[in-house]
Write a protein that binds this DNA or RNA. Sequence first.
DNA 1: CTTCAATGAGACATTGATGTCTCATCTGGG
DNA 2: CCCAGATGAGACATCAATGTCTCATTGAAG
Lengths: 192, 192
Amino acid sequence: MSHLGYPCLMALDRDHVLRSAAALLTRKSTATMDEVAKAAGISRATLHRHFAGRDALVRALEQLGIAECEGALDRARPEEGSAAEAVRRLVREIQPAAGLLAFLYGENQLWEGDRQNEGWQRLDARIGALFQRGQRGGEFRIDLSPVWLTEALYGLIASCAWATLDGRVASRDFPTMIAELLLGGALRREEP
Amino acid sequence: MSHLGYPCLMALDRDHVLRSAAALLTRKSTATMDEVAKAAGISRATLHRHFAGRDALVRALEQLGIAECEGALDRARPEEGSAAEAVRRLVREIQPAAGLLAFLYGENQLWEGDRQNEGWQRLDARIGALFQRGQRGGEFRIDLSPVWLTEALYGLIASCAWATLDGRVASRDFPTMIAELLLGGALRREEP
DNA sequence: CTTCAATGAGACATTGATGTCTCATCTGGG
DNA sequence: CCCAGATGAGACATCAATGTCTCATTGAAG
């Protein structure tokens, strides 16, 4: 065992706890610390040894969500190829984190404060830049601002995540439903 | 003054309280009964005379939200003209209730129960029927299910309502942003 | 085997929101 | 004026979640 100040197993456990909490809070955002602990298979005492309190847990989940988003954005290579294809890649890569994002999206507590986590600003900027690239390249229409398109993307991800949990949308359709609606809309394209 | 069991002014006040609560809870969904009372300009005691408790208040807001949606749907005349125009009318009519809907949308408590208010089912059916009409008429694409389009509409309304509160989207752009994205998507149409 | 960090179980106090109650005050109708 | 109903203010108990604490047990390294 470690004779350092940092326990060696907690780092691994912490990630497991975090993901269990994400999965539970996605379904029940008001879950108790007790329920979170049970879902992770640990005691409430141990949970408190990992996270000082509920607030710290939510903040950690926020960090995880940001990290997952940035990872998805990196893997999606937003500067490569057509903007539309980049958006499709992004949606596909982001699907595993959709539940967590939906939870965070509904956690108003995170947005009420005067200062929000700057990670979201970075993400907004990167996603907004992708939409802007599409506009500059004549691929996307210019009457829908990049800011709104970014916001809409988040909203559709959360909507589809919840609809998936309720069984109203099949999990395998997630990327298509979001990307197709966001890019093409409901109107049928004219035959070329 | 009334000698009946039902006070005569409470009916009027009740509506005012309900709308104040909606406005407050839209901004701060975790607001206390005390804050709700203050926002309505009444005391907590009086608030409790109107609504048995927080749960009853939320249920009443849910009813109000359903009623506003049905009213908007009626005024939008979903059976009339092109489906796309009907959707545009619907979004326009629903804007005043968007904040309330966004609050209700995030109130997971309403959806966790085994049985949800049947008003939502009626609304889902009516809105779904509108999208289906557009599909049957060859106006909308058929690879996006009416259920998903309905869900997406709710999600975009909530997104835009929050973005409007934060000043990221102008209030006057609300109908356009939602309807244009939902109908046309981000992709630029080919020149005919 | 010994040791020690990590854990689980549970007791305990605290906190914040809630629901209920009483009582003084206000107000409009008779 | 007088009164009944409505209100506001506040005291009070309750309740659930939280945060903190202790202590016995476990388990793996030395």
